[in-house]
Simulated scan of single mutants.
Amino acid sequence: MSQWEGISEFVSAAELESFTSAANQLSTSVAQVSRRIARLEAHLGVKLFVRTTRRVALTEAGQVYYHHCKQLVSGLEAANSALTEMQSAVKGKIRLTAPVYFGENELAPLLTDFAEQHSDLQLDIVLTNRQLDIIEGGFDLAIRLGNLSDSNLIAKKLGTRQMHVCASPQYLAQYGQPHSLAELSYHQCLVGSQPYWRFSEKGAHRQIRVDGRFRCNSGHFLAMAAKRGIGIAQLPDVYVHQDLESGDLVELLLPFREKEEGIWALYPQKSFLPYKTKMLLDHLVEGLKGR
């Protein structure tokens, strides 16, 4: 038999001095309580109770055993309570990684709001454009942008972002505006971490290799260069939406614009998602909805 079998029934009967009261407390039958205590006594090779017609009383061995078992049951109850509290309160620590610019400009206000709402929560945030190993780095969440590679991680969509091909009015006045994907080869393209741009043509996904005299892995740098009239850039809306609204940048090749990409939260596969993490994910979804 299991070492734990009959312990709860024994402790309850010892405290209430009644198998019937113990059965009521544990929401089970008197027969089940009696059977499990009898099996426990047989397993231990001692009598734990003296039974009378009116009540049950602990034997000397039963009193010694109760003293120790009470601590075990109390510890188990405390452990269960701790898990229940964890699942109903946002407390503890969440370790998160995200791209630098997106983290600084989109996530920062959402994360600080969440931290202010939950004073018992500790946030450990690592902003980097490198895709860190979530398991090895001990992260609870990783925010990723765009298309995801296959992995054993769980992915939750937080929102979407749109890619824009754009240039300044002064660049277009000097070099003209491309109207087809082929015309990009005649223009100065501001190249990011990948040497190609993504488009949609007649419903099909296309990748066009681009080139130019400026190459940088910083979207902020490329957006600034585009505003200065140095070339054409393809960047997510987080970098350029204000400049497009103000007219400092002009969107190009709209008929070839690809569909919106996902903003994702990745987390390790677990049997259950901690309450604090679930609440943070819900907060990010709601916050990014209006971006």
Rank of each mutant, 00 (worst) to 15 (best):
R55D: 03
S193G: 01
Q131M: 01
A204I: 15
L26H: 01
F199H: 04
H67V: 08
R206P: 05
H187M: 09
A167I: 10
E41A: 11
D248V: 08
E286Y: 06
E17S: 09
A22C: 03
L288G: 08
E60V: 12
F19I: 06
F256I: 07
V285T: 02
V50R: 10
A78H: 14
A61P: 06
R51Q: 14
V90S: 01
Q131P: 02
L127T: 07
S200F: 11
L252G: 01
R198W: 04
G92S: 12
G192K: 02
V90N: 01
L83M: 13
L76P: 00
L172T: 09
A22I: 04
L58E: 04
K157H: 06
S81C: 05
L121F: 10
V73D: 12
V165H: 00
G229T: 11
Q25C: 09
K47R: 15
T160L: 05
V56A: 10
T84K: 10
H118Q: 15
E9I: 02
Q117C: 13
Y196S: 10
V50K: 07
F139S: 00
D113C: 05
L184H: 06
A31H: 13
E106S: 15
A14L: 04
K47T: 12
E136G: 15
H205V: 13
T84Y: 06
H164E: 03
H220I: 09
H179D: 02
Q188D: 08
E245W: 02
D248P: 03
P274W: 14
L280M: 11
E85R: 11
Y186G: 08
Q234H: 02
I37P: 14
L26P: 03
W197C: 03
S8R: 14
T160V: 05
A22S: 03
L26C: 01
E201H: 15
R36P: 00
D211Y: 02
S21C: 08
F214N: 04
H220Y: 11
G290P: 00
Y239E: 11
L72F: 07
K270G: 05
Y196T: 10
E15Q: 05
D243H: 12
T97V: 14
D113G: 08
L40V: 03
A108I: 04
L141S: 05
L40E: 03
A142T: 09
L83A: 10
S2E: 10
A155E: 04
K278Q: 09
G290K: 06
S271P: 04
Q194G: 00
W197R: 05
K276R: 15
N217C: 06
